[in-house]
């Protein structure tokens, strides 16, 4: 199957946030109690109940002033740090369409995907299970558009064959963010500005420490029964020894 992807054309986003609510509606996610912190942007970051959100970015002044809107979500990496780092087989995985799906039943609540993600996306819900945008894999598998894409009034959010979306964006003169990084993102931006204008990393990459895990430890097959030990080792590698014991103690309570 051809790899599917999102293309997010920032020039077309009006920040109506239909995407934000349509996602909650389809996925039946509750609202978070919020306060205004001096911005329209709310909640201020992704939460276990918020799989995609609009970032409001004000820059410059006078005639150079710009107000840009960026749909933030899981970018569905081809080379996905979260999948790489996940010690529990099948908890995080690439779907047939190339999206990054997850199976909460297999999630062991280790939190490592949080560290493995270059974009600070995965969140843990009240049951301490991973949660994030899964590209509405239930809808996509049944031939529907993801809920956010369907709702988007201005076609700022598009979903389809990755190659075709890239070709179309380039044909219209847009700069594509994420075409090749991390083996190609499954949610790319067609930017009307530079990555810096949108506070996006120029060259996103998986934290270096992850490679130790992927290339050295994971191949040793420390999974299943050994998963927790492996996870602990990763934690040691990425965070350091100090919280190691605390972590085990916490787990002991469950």
């Amino acid at each position: 199957m051809a790899r599917k992807a999102f293309m997010i054309d920032t020039s077309r986003c009006t920040a109506c946030r239909g995407c934000q609510v349509a996602c909650k509606q389809w996925n039946k996610l509750p609202a978070d109690a919020e306060v205004n912190r001096g911005s329209y942007e709310n909640p201020p970051q992704l939460t276990p109940h918020l799989y995609n959100k609009i970032e409001f970015i004000e820059k410059g002044e006078g005639k150079d002033f710009t107000w840009r809107f960026l749909n933030q979500r899981c970018l569905q990496c081809g080379d996905a740090g979260c999948i790489k780092v996940c010690p529990s087989a099948g908890a995080l995985f690439h779907t047939e369409e190339g999206l990054v799906g997850y199976d909460q039943d297999k999630c062991i609540s280790c939190n490592y995907c949080v560290n493995g993600c270059p974009f600070d996306v995965p969140r843990y819900d009240a049951n301490n299970k991973v949660t994030k945008c899964h590209g509405c894999m239930d809808r996509v598998a049944n031939g529907l558009q993801p809920a956010c894409v369907k709702a988007c009034p201005t076609a700022s959010l598009q979903f389809g064959d990755r190659d075709k979306l890239i070709a179309a964006a380039k044909a219209s003169g847009k700069q594509v963010y994420g075409e090749t990084a991390l083996s190609g993102l499954g949610a790319m931006y067609a930017l009307d500005g530079s990555p810096q204008d949108y506070n996006l990393a120029e060259n996103p990459s998986i934290p270096q420490s992850i490679f130790l895990w992927k290339d050295v430890i994971k191949p040793l097959g420390i999974l299943g029964f050994w998963g927790a030990v492996g996870a602990a080792m990763l934690h040691y590698v990425t965070v350091g020894p100090k919280q190691l014991e605390d972590d085990f103690e916490d787990k002991g309570g469950e």
Partner: peptide, 10 residues
Amino acid sequence: PWLLEMQPSM
């Protein structure tokens, strides 16, 4: 609630 979350107050 979904709407109040985004614009919670005056």
